[in-house]
């Protein structure tokens, strides 16, 4: 009646169901992965005819001797290190507070999550205006504390912090939702037992809540790191299509975009994409390796 083992007939039926998704995925997700790796070795390539007349390591040699590429890797790492710890910590704190509040929780969630659903382009324009050195809201606010106007978007020292602040603001709600899920999955009895044993609120947080929440903290960190490595839209809009003053916000994806779209150097762009992929892979593996020791699955 119910077939446990696949037969040729059941396979044919299943592939009929899979076909639409399979075709699109093969053409636009799987094939381009291999094609990307291949393209990174194309040293003489005619895009219009898709003809390759020479292969080699030249693209990799180029990017690894290009100071701009090193700069982009460095900036990307600074960006990730600037965003992820603050974002994880802030969203954890807010989620803990939201979890305990009994009134207005829904309204608060709406407010914190709102930036996540808004267009990055539109909201980056708003932040561009907030960061305006002469008339911007932020400098007006800071002037109350005697801070002199900062040229957030044109000063190479402040461009990266400006980008980081905006990114944290935009991604906070998403992380808060994940932490709230993690918190609601924790069995209240653990906390009660610890309370009976005489643990105070801080001890209970450190020894009960935090370890039980660690799988979610891990998930939030991994997704934040991955999306941090891929930052592009925010930079493009915030700095009007440029990689920031003095290339101070030139990231790997921006480098890829420039090589591909502005300079038409497909091989070099593909090589930088491969490096991006490997970087994300290595960092994710390190996070998983670290998690095996420090994440507690209840």
């Amino acid at each position: 009646m119910i077939k446990q083992h696949p037969t040729i007939k059941s396979t044919l039926i299943a592939f009929a169901y899979l076909a639409p998704m399979l075709i699109i995925t093969l053409v636009f997700n799987i094939y381009p992965i291999f094609k990307s790796f291949a393209m990174s070795f194309y040293t003489k390539y005619d895009f219009f005819t898709d003809k390759v007349s020479a292969l080699g390591w030249a693209n990799y040699k180029f990017i690894f001797s290009d100071p701009d590429f090193y700069l982009s890797v460095r900036n990307t790492l600074i960006f990730v290190l600037g965003v992820v710890p603050f974002s994880v910590l802030l969203s954890l704190i807010i989620a803990l507070l939201l979890h305990r509040v009994r009134f207005l929780a829904g309204l608060f969630k709406t407010a914190y999550f709102l930036p996540f659903v808004t267009s990055t382009v539109a909201i980056s324009l708003v932040w561009q205006w907030i960061y305006n050195d002469q008339y911007g809201l932020l400098n007006a606010f800071l002037s109350h504390f005697g801070v002199h106007p900062i040229d957030w978007l044109n000063d190479p020292h402040w461009a990266m912090p400006a980008l980081i602040i905006m990114t944290i603001w935009k991604g906070l709600g998403f992380n808060i939702i994940l932490f709230l899920v993690g918190l609601s999955n924790i069995d209240k009895r653990y906390d009660q037992v610890a309370q009976i044993d005489g643990a105070n609120a801080w001890q209970r947080f450190i020894h009960v809540t935090l370890p039980l929440l660690s799988p979610m903290t891990f998930l939030v960190s991994v997704t934040s790191v991955i999306s941090g490595f891929k930052v592009f839209d925010e930079i493009f809009v915030l700095f009007g299509g440029s990689p920031g003053p003095g290339k101070s916000t030139l990231t790997i994806v921006f480098y890829l975009y420039q090589k591909f779209y502005s300079e038409w150097k497909y091989g070099i762009a593909a090589a930088s994409g491969v490096v991006l992929f490997l970087l994300i892979l290595v960092v994710t593996i390190i996070q998983f390796w670290y998690s095996r020791k420090h994440v507690h699955y209840a």
């Binding site: 381009p32 490595f229 890829l256 591909f260 497909y266 491969v274 991006l276 994300i280 994710t284």
Partner: peptide, 11 residues
């Protein structure tokens, strides 16, 4: 695992 940005060029 593959970043979508890498697929832009071949696509």
């Amino acid at each position: 695992m593959v970043p979508g940005e890498m697929l832009i060029i071949p696509n």
